[in-house]
Amino acid sequence: THFTSQQLQELEATFQRNHYPDMSTREEIAVWTNLTEARVRVWFKNRRAKWR
């Protein structure tokens, strides 16, 4: 999946605040970024792996 810079900005900003967002937070992010909750969940999983 290719993310727009706007989507990445929103995802990264949320990641800085919370590395493990809950389901409702992921659903909110999905609405803001026009992505599915599953895409958001996978992005956070991959981002945490990169962060370690």
Rank of each mutant, 00 (worst) to 15 (best):
E27L: 14
K50A: 12
R52W: 10
R48Y: 04
H2Q: 11
M23F: 14
Q6M: 10
W51V: 07
T33N: 07
R47H: 03
H19S: 05
Q6V: 10
W51Q: 08
T4R: 04
A49I: 09
K45D: 06
R47E: 04
W43R: 02
F3K: 04
A30S: 05
H2W: 12
N34S: 08
R39I: 15
R47D: 01
F3M: 10
R48W: 04
W51M: 12
T14D: 03
H19E: 03
R47Q: 04
I29C: 04
V31S: 12
R41W: 06
E37D: 03
F3G: 02
T14F: 15
E12D: 03
Y20M: 05
R41T: 06
E27S: 10
Q6W: 15
V42T: 12
T4K: 04
R48I: 06
N34C: 08
A49C: 10
F3A: 03
V42Y: 11
W51S: 07
Q6G: 08
F44L: 02
E12A: 02
F15C: 03
A49Q: 10
A49D: 09
R17T: 09
V42W: 14
A38T: 09
V31M: 13
N34Y: 05
A13I: 10
W32Y: 13
W43M: 00
H2N: 09
T36W: 04
F3P: 05
Q16E: 08
V40P: 00
P21T: 02
K45I: 14
V40T: 00
E10M: 15
M23S: 07
R47I: 02
K45V: 12
A38G: 08
S24P: 11
E37C: 05
A49S: 08
K50D: 07
L8P: 01
V40E: 01
V40I: 08
R26K: 02
R26Q: 03
K50M: 11
F44R: 00
R48A: 04
V31K: 15
S5G: 08
H19N: 05
L35E: 03
V31I: 13
T36N: 05
I29Y: 02
T36H: 03
R52G: 07
N46F: 12
V40C: 00
E12V: 04
V42P: 00
A30I: 03
L11K: 00
M23V: 08
R26M: 10
Y20S: 05
Q16C: 09
R41F: 06
E10P: 01
E27V: 13
R39K: 14
V31N: 13
A30D: 01
Y20K: 04
E10T: 14
R47M: 05
R41L: 07
K45Y: 10
T33D: 01
R26I: 14
L35V: 07
E27R: 14
W43T: 00
R41N: 08
S5L: 13
A38K: 12
N18F: 06
Q6P: 05
R26S: 02
V42E: 15
N34M: 08
A38L: 14
N18M: 07
T25A: 12
T33L: 15
K50Y: 08
R26G: 01
T4H: 04
D22P: 06
V42D: 14
K45F: 09
H19Y: 05
V42M: 13
T1L: 12
S24F: 09
W32F: 14
V40Y: 01
H2L: 10
S5C: 15
V31G: 10
H2M: 11
L8S: 06
R47Y: 02
Q6S: 10
A49M: 10
L35S: 13
N34T: 05
K50G: 07
T33V: 11
D22S: 09
A49L: 09
T14L: 15
W43K: 00
T14I: 15
E12G: 00
L35N: 05
R47G: 03
R48E: 03
D22C: 06
P21R: 01
T14P: 01
N34D: 10
K50S: 09
N34Q: 10
T4L: 05
R39Y: 09
M23P: 06
N18Q: 06
R48S: 02
I29P: 00
N18D: 07
R26Y: 09
E10C: 15
L8F: 05
T33C: 12
E27I: 15
Q7P: 01
E28L: 14
E10W: 15
E12L: 04
L11R: 00
Q7A: 06
V42G: 09
W51E: 13
T33M: 14
T4G: 04
Q6C: 12
Y20W: 13
Q7T: 06
T1F: 14
H19P: 14
T14W: 15
A30H: 02
W43D: 00
R48C: 02
P21Y: 03
W51Y: 09
W32P: 02
E28I: 11
R39F: 12
A13W: 12
A30W: 04
T36A: 05
N34L: 06
L8W: 11
T4D: 06
Q7C: 06
A49R: 14
S5H: 12
T4I: 03
R41S: 09
W51F: 11
L8T: 06
V31A: 14
R48G: 01
D22E: 04
E12S: 01
N46G: 07
D22F: 02
A49T: 07
A13Y: 10
R26P: 02
F3I: 11
S24Y: 10
V31H: 13
L11S: 01
A13P: 01
T4A: 03
N46A: 11
R52V: 08
E37W: 04
T36S: 09
L8G: 02
T25S: 08
E28C: 14
K50F: 08
H2A: 11
W32K: 15
N34W: 05
S24H: 12
E12T: 02
K50Q: 13
P21L: 03
A13Q: 09
L35G: 03
A13K: 13
R17I: 11
R52D: 07
Q9I: 12
N46L: 12
M23A: 10
F44A: 00
Q7Y: 04
R47K: 05
E37M: 05
R52K: 11
N46E: 13
K45C: 12
H2T: 10
F15M: 00
R17V: 10
T25C: 14
K50C: 09
S24A: 14
M23N: 06
E10K: 15
W43N: 00
Y20G: 01
T33S: 06
K45N: 07
F44Q: 00
R17K: 13
A30L: 02
M23D: 05
L11G: 01
T14G: 10
N46P: 00
W32I: 15
E37G: 03
T14Y: 15
P21W: 05
A49F: 07
T25R: 09
T25Q: 14
R48L: 07
A38Q: 11
R39T: 14
R17D: 08
R41P: 00
H2D: 11
T33F: 13
P21D: 01
F15Y: 07
N18P: 01
Q7W: 05
A30C: 05
N46T: 09
P21I: 03
T4Y: 05
R47V: 02
R48H: 05
R52A: 09
V40F: 01
I29W: 02
A38Y: 14
V40R: 00
W43A: 00
A49E: 10
N34K: 09
H2R: 13
T36F: 04
A13D: 08
H19K: 14
W51A: 09
N46S: 08
T1V: 12
Q16Y: 08
